[in-house]
């Protein structure tokens, strides 16, 4: 099974981004998704900068995919999308149907987690347009994913989001700016102050969500480490880890060691815990509420969505 690193969803500075990808070069990561997927106002790197990073990663043997915005409204956003779609070097991950429209018929592309693939008919249709890989929408559970995977079109690869905060929703409104009484037009890039997102607590002080610009994520880390055996037996092609600012090389190392049978799941869970300030969850995989904590729900009573 291959390991991928999803696009960075937070607004990090240039040096931090470069250092992040440099540290991945010597890891067991097979595939790296690059580019801005959340907010077009984040312009720390331009397409040429991303292509430079892509070149370094590709030279070290990684497969590189260029990711695209999930919410596209402005003409300038569509123009950037077109530039990415027309790059002649790297395949592209579509995160909006606009990208599918531009990529269809122009060689293989990837269906990102924000394209709604819930059934085999949708997957087959998009395959005919050139999709070669799909990443399941976050809320799909084991039973649904298994059926989609078992009946997938020929040579279609299945990628499952296995580790990171869940991307749950997008809005036209910037929640980071709102929390600072700023409008989106005058946001001052306040989201760059929160490199792992801005925590939102319930009034009884449970960390519930994370605000990341126009995106809302889970506060807890979605963690399928305890289910890796199952993912292998289903035949899942790729597991995805989403970037967070600390411990990425170690997180990759822990997951790959479990995959290679070198590390017991229980020990892996303990080692990962330090990178999960608000705990971890795996409810979606078990067919229930996404926020259900790992191992809180006995397997036999979990029903699938």
């Amino acid at each position: 099974m291959k390991i991928s690193i999803g696009p960075i969803q937070y607004f990090w500075g240039r040096e931090k981004i470069l250092a992040f990808y440099d540290q991945l070069i010597d890891t067991r990561v097979d595939i790296v998704y690059l580019g801005e997927t959340v907010c077009s106002k984040r312009r720390e790197l331009n397409l040429n900068d991303w292509l430079e990073i892509a070149g370094r990663l590709a030279a070290s043997g990684k497969e590189v995919i260029l990711s695209t915005l999930a919410l596209l409204e402005a003409g300038s956003e569509l123009a950037s999308l077109q530039q990415i779609a027309e790059n002649n070097v790297y395949p592209v991950e579509a995160n909006d149907v606009a990208a599918v429209q531009l990529l269809a018929g122009h060689g293989p592309f990837v269906l990102g987690p924000h394209i709604n693939v819930y059934n085999n008919e949708t997957l087959a249709f998009l395959h005919r347009l050139g999709a070669k890989r799909w990443i399941s929408p976050v809320e799909l559970g084991r039973n649904t994913i298994t059926r989609l995977h078992e009946n997938r079109p020929p040579a279609m690869e299945t990628e499952i989001f296995a580790y990171g905060r869940l991307p749950l929703a997008f809005s036209a409104r910037c929640f980071s700016a709102r929390a600072h009484d700023k409008s989106k037009d005058d946001c001052g890039h306040i989201c760059s102050d929160y490199p792992d997102g801005l925590a939102l607590y319930t009034q009884d002080d449970d960390a519930f969500l994370v605000l990341n610009g126009i995106q809302v994520q889970s506060a807890t880390v979605h963690n399928l480490v305890a289910h890796l055996d199952e993912l292998v037996s289903i035949g899942i092609d790729i597991i995805r880890i989403d970037p967070q600012q600390h411990g990425m090389a170690e997180i990759v190392s822990v997951l790959s060691s479990v995959l290679d049978g070198q590390l017991q799941t229980g020990i892996a869970m303990e080692q990962l815990a330090r990178y999960q300030p608000y705990g971890s969850c795996d409810g979606y995989w078990r067919g229930g509420a996404g926020m259900a904590p790992v191992a809180a729900m006995p397997e036999e009573i979990a029903s699938d969505a």
């Binding site: 819930y118 869940l166 929703a169 997008f170 409104r173 926020m291 969505a305």
Partner: peptide, 22 residues
């Protein structure tokens, strides 16, 4: 709806049921 419809999993994150799936 403050979120982009069709791509909001807040409800299923808490309850297991979302507009998309249920």
């Amino acid at each position: 709806c403050v979120m982009v419809e069709g791509r909001c999993a807040l409800s299923s994150y808490v309850t297991g049921n979302s507009p998309n799936s249920a």
